[in-house]
Design a binder for these strands. Structure first.
Lengths: 242, 242
DNA sequence: GCCCCGCTATGTCAAACCACATAGGTCGAC
DNA sequence: GTCGACCTATGTGGTTTGACATAGCGGGGC
């Protein structure tokens, strides 16, 4: 099951800054085994002590927090190449939970090795910081979305942002990609109720800018969607992958 | 105007992990001059290239993003000791703006020196990452707040979180502290309209859990506020300061 | 085959929130 | 002292969103 970093196909995707063979070998030596998690399983628990640091290798996941009465907010979706668990690694305990949306594979960077990593390989330390900053940028964007856009705009902006993230990972084929989200997930991510999400989605699909069927999202007019939601973030900046 | 880190009173506050004299001297050598910014002035611009990395030394500020039609979302408030501009430093251009709420002083860590910093002082590199992760944790919490709490709960949760952050900085005296926010700022931070914020605030003050007068917030019953808003985050974890 | 469960869909009604209008207070510029 | 700018306050009425109820659809277990 273990894929050596030197054989990794993910890191060859255009989304990522390409590394030299020596760098890749070094990163390979830092990791322990791959870890497999089935769809629906929570692999980082709120309040969990000593969570490891992960790179999502394949599949989708999401981070969330919830209130004590059960209301849940999805903070961000994670796609391949994203770092997960940095807060838990830094603070010694996680303040959010993370759940797999599909079956996923995680590359594990053991928490105990991280300090050593920072000492020995400052370039990689810099990249960890970079990815942490990017993770915050995504939450920033989600907060803008939930705080200032109406329901229809929120849904469209979410679609735009996922499209723009999926594309450089090679997940988009003919303008469509697998979207492993239920309407409940969309509602939880956008600060909407399930019913309102459903009705707004129905109206949007009727407008024909996109369609969803069989877990696949077909984007017909990305420009139109971007304009409607005033979503003008560029996501195709090459980024490090660890 | 320049305060040497060795003389810095801020870093002696209980909020921060205390450093040895050598470490402080080293950090001192990394910084350039202090920078002073007047209240209301934007010191990080959206889209700005090459913003520096700052530690907020005194006063309050906020980070924000806005849509092209002018709707503005405040992403987070910054208090003394917080790092600002990490995204701009990492990505080469800032994706948010930052504005001073009061007259502020900023310690400047020149962008160009950061890579060298990571090479030579891995402990500080680790702390930069730590503070970046904490910054994300604050946005996470804000997103939960805006996405899942009602208007009254949002306001109360904001008050709780600011109180819990101000307290270990020594800003709270007799249960009250300077709150340099207008209702417009509160509305922009919570995803509410100005009018609705005003009316909700009026109702809350009538309930007597807190009061605001002359730019000062008096918290009468923190427990009651926390329970009402289901706000149970602990903010008194000692943290690094750079 | 049948049932159960999770997901989607749709109607009705109520609550939350917003837009617009208006007004009073304070403070600094001149 | 007057003016304007900014902030706070409050009423009216409309729009958006949520809560509750009900139903259909499809897949897995047995």
């Amino acid at each position: 099951m273990h894929v050596r970093c030197t054989q990794c196909v993910l890191r060859r995707q255009p989304a990522f800054i390409q590394k030299s063979d020596e760098e890749v070998a070094l990163i390979d030596s830092l990791k322990s085994e791959h870890m497999t998690v089935e769809a629906g399983v929570e692999f980082i628990h709120p309040e969990q002590a000593d969570s490891e640091l992960y790179t999502l290798f394949s599949g989708w996941a999401f981070r969330y927090k919830e209130l004590s009465d059960g209301r849940r907010q999805i903070l961000s979706f994670s796609l391949p190449g994203d770092l997960l668990g940095l807060q838990g690694t830094m603070f010694g305990k996680s303040v959010y939970g993370a759940i797999a949306l599909t079956d996923i594979q995680l590359c594990v960077i053991p928490r105990r090795r991280l300090a050593r990593l920072f000492e020995r390989v400052p370039e990689v330390a810099y990249e960890v910081t970079w990815l942490g900053a990017r993770s915050e940028a995504i939450v920033d964007e989600n907060l803008l979305n939930v705080g200032r856009r109406g329901a229809a705009e929120r849904i469209v902006a979410l679609i735009c942002s996922l499209y723009k993230r999926a594309e450089p990972l090679g997940l988009v084929v003919d303008g469509s990609f697998e979207l492993p989200l239920t309407q409940q997930h969309i509602a939880d991510a956008l600060g909407l109720s399930l019913v309102h999400t459903n009705k707004t989605l129905a109206r949007l699909r009727a407008d024909g800018l996109f369609s969803i069927s069989g877990g696949r999202l077909v984007v017909r007019n990305l420009r139109g969607l971007s304009r409607f939601a005033q979503h003008f973030e560029e996501e195709f900046v090459p980024r490090p992958i660890i």
